[in-house]
Simulated scan of single mutants.
Amino acid sequence: MSDDVKEIFAPASTPPGSPGPPAPPAPAALAAKVRTLAPSMTRSMQRVAEAVASDPAACAALTVTGLAELTGTSEATVVRTARILGYPGYRDLRLALAGLAAHQQSGRAPSVTADIAVDDPLPDVVAKLAYDEQQTLADTAAGLDMAQLGAAVAALAGARRIDIYGVGASGLVAQDLTQKLLRIGLIAHAHSDPHLAVTNAVQLRAKDVAIAITHSGSTGDVIEPLRVAFDHGATTIAITGRPDGPVSQYADHVLTTSTARESELRPAAMSSRTSQLLVVDCLFIGVAQRTYESAAPALSASYEALAHRHRIGGPSR
């Protein structure tokens, strides 16, 4: 075995006095991690990830050498894949695979449905979409880092001002989060125009928060204002399906989303919105809980104002 491979197999060191590495994902989160991270892996790592996701029981019975031979890769690639998925080494990944296989055998982890076809009858389309939506939500919940989510909630609860960046489908999610925060008395702005986003980001300071929403993690119109906010001292948050993407370079806190399988009739933008909205709701509820004494009256006031508007038939002219 070469020195390079030995180094890969060696456990990662932790500097004295620093916290240990994060706990590896639970078995139920393994499939979600594979779906989320596989697109950003090298092709050889993808073969390993696809193998463990498609047949966890069989892979759990294999040694690192056996899995390398099965996937036509190397032992080093298998270990690297395990670490990218969040496990300290292959032994930990094997334990998770055994747990995932047990979940599937008990019926708690149903097999993935087929893609939606052009000639599918509407009842099948509804059933497949419902399953994919449920799986996306479950994957996102299983993969959310609670420490990162808690830190993001704390930052938002104490923010002087909140800027939220998103374009396309992610822009709709940015607007949804903005209106939720406004209704509990926080100052929030959604920006879909990249020029206005950067112009506003320049004004952010240490007590402010900037949030970038991008499934790909590489949307330039979203990354640039986040970078500017980061450089000006604001607390920055990324909601992304690619935690290793460029957006994470400028994010103090990263919240990872999952996505249902992309198909010809269901692009990534459509399926990613489901998981983004779940994260947005988690942030909103967390902030409302922390600021309940001020959030509850503000929410009641907004309800009353809207009810009054409907009672009089709309705004006066």
Score class of each variant (00 low, 15 high):
E293V: 13
V222Q: 09
V209E: 09
V209N: 11
D3E: 14
V247S: 10
Q135E: 13
D115L: 12
Q46T: 11
A26C: 01
R47H: 14
A201D: 01
T219C: 09
H103G: 08
A188P: 06
T199C: 08
R309G: 00
P21S: 04
R290Y: 11
L93F: 02
Q135K: 12
R183I: 13
A251T: 03
S192H: 01
V112H: 13
L277E: 07
L122E: 05
M270V: 14
A295S: 15
L278A: 09
G143W: 10
A301W: 10
P243W: 06
V5W: 12
H232S: 06
L265E: 01
V78S: 01
L277A: 15
I162K: 02
H232Q: 10
I187A: 12
P22G: 09
T235R: 13
L137C: 10
A76N: 05
E133Y: 07
L299W: 12
R160A: 13
S40A: 15
G245A: 05
L196Q: 00
A109G: 08
R47A: 08
G217F: 10
E224M: 11
P194H: 04
E7M: 13
A206V: 04
L144K: 03
G86I: 03
L196G: 09
I184A: 08
V34A: 04
G217V: 07
A154T: 12
P243A: 12
L196A: 02
R160M: 11
S18Y: 09
A101L: 06
